[in-house]
């Protein structure tokens, strides 16, 4: 398309900092944020490469070696770095796969919610009138109900399956995007450039896709980083309660839920997956917070 060729001819867009007229030094990360970013990179790599890293199949049981402790114990056994669970499955392998499943679910869910919410937010702002009313009523409705309760009810009524569960992850946060997008678009629409593009005769797709959306992307991305930990917590909570990811598939929450029966004898079964969840959500929150203060100086 000609729009693309024109873009290619143009020099690479300047980094956002330069555009905002702020010195690049302001983007230097504090130590804590760097650690958080490093953890996020590590966890993502692990999730991405999990099947290559696992020493055993995560479902492979060995009833002779059940509940073996990790490497630091004198009772640990060769080949199982983090020991084994109640069915003799290798804990490290399960932890790697569970990290992959939990992160993939949270990522997919967050993206589904972001796309859905952004679309509905644009629609509400663009059409106004009753469309706006209906979307905002749905937003109010969802904000009024604790989503965990909605999810539990849907799982009870419809029974559990993976795609339903994924859909629920996606529905979890859409309303924050819808609300945010709507207000961003409403103010962006009044900006001179948006009026000018309309006056040029652009169709809505061009107006929103090429001009408004790229200009309001910053806050939406921040919202993404803030929603991601919430989606992880939703998935792990439901799986912890035994109502989310079902065996034979595993997730961090499910491992934690299984492990709590062995707190007295094998605490690491619960603490290791819990630790991974906590580190991931904590890192994401720290990173998202930092990003928000960078992009929006009025927020404290």
């Amino acid at each position: 398309m000609s729009a693309e060729t024109a873009d290619n001819a143009a020099p690479a867009p300047k980094p956002a900092a330069a555009r905002a007229g702020r010195p690049v030094g302001a983007w230097r990360m504090p130590l804590l944020v760097r650690i958080a970013a490093a953890i996020l990179v590590l966890v993502s790599l692990v999730a991405l490469l999990a099947p290559l890293l696992t020493p055993y199949g995560y479902e492979e049981t060995d009833l002779l070696y059940r509940l073996k402790p990790p490497f630091w114990s004198s009772l640990s056994i060769e080949g199982h770095l983090l020991g084994t669970d109640k069915l003799g499955r290798d804990l490290l392998s399960r932890l790697l796969i569970a990290t992959q499943v939990s992160l993939a679910l949270a990522l997919l869910g967050t993206l589904i919610g972001a796309v859905l919410g952004t679309f509905l937010g644009i629609l509400a702002a663009h059409r106004g009138g009753w469309v706006d009313e209906v979307v905002m009523m749905l937003v109010d409705w969802q904000a009024a109900m604790p989503f965990l309760i909605i999810a539990l009810a849907v799982l009870a009524f419809l029974g559990n399956n993976f795609y339903l569960f994924l859909a629920l992850m996606g529905l979890a946060g859409w309303e924050t995007y819808a609300r945010l997008t709507r207000s961003l678009v409403l103010s962006a629409r009044e900006q001179g450039y948006a009026v000018a593009v309309r006056a040029l005769g652009a169709r809505p797709l061009r107006l929103y896709g090429r001009h408004i959306l790229p200009n309001v992307m910053g806050p939406l991305i921040v919202q993404l980083t803030l929603n991601f930990p919430q989606t992880i917590l939703l998935e792990t909570s439901l799986s912890f309660l035994g109502l989310g990811i079902q065996p034979p598939l595993t997730s961090l929450g499910q491992m934690l839920g299984d492990g709590r029966d062995y707190l007295l004898t094998a605490w690491w079964l619960a603490v290791l997956p819990g630790g991974v969840i906590f580190l991931t959500t904590l890192s994401m929150s720290l990173f998202g917070d930092w990003l928000r203060t960078r992009l929006d100086p009025t927020q404290r």
């Binding site: 000609s2 729009a3 024109a6 873009d7 001819a9 143009a10 020099p11 867009p13 555009r19 900006q191 001179g192 450039y193 009026v195 000018a196 593009v197 006056a199 040029l200 005769g201 652009a202 169709r203 061009r206 090429r210 001009h211 790229p214 200009n215």
Partner: peptide, 27 residues
């Protein structure tokens, strides 16, 4: 067509001048 008072906000900050001038022709 129209020409605005506030030229700064009348231009999309994320596109080059060239790309914006070409836009009407593309549309």
């Amino acid at each position: 067509q129209l020409i605005f008072q506030d030229s700064r906000s009348a231009l999309d900050p994320r596109l080059t001048v060239e790309a914006q001038v070409a836009e009407g022709l593309e549309i």
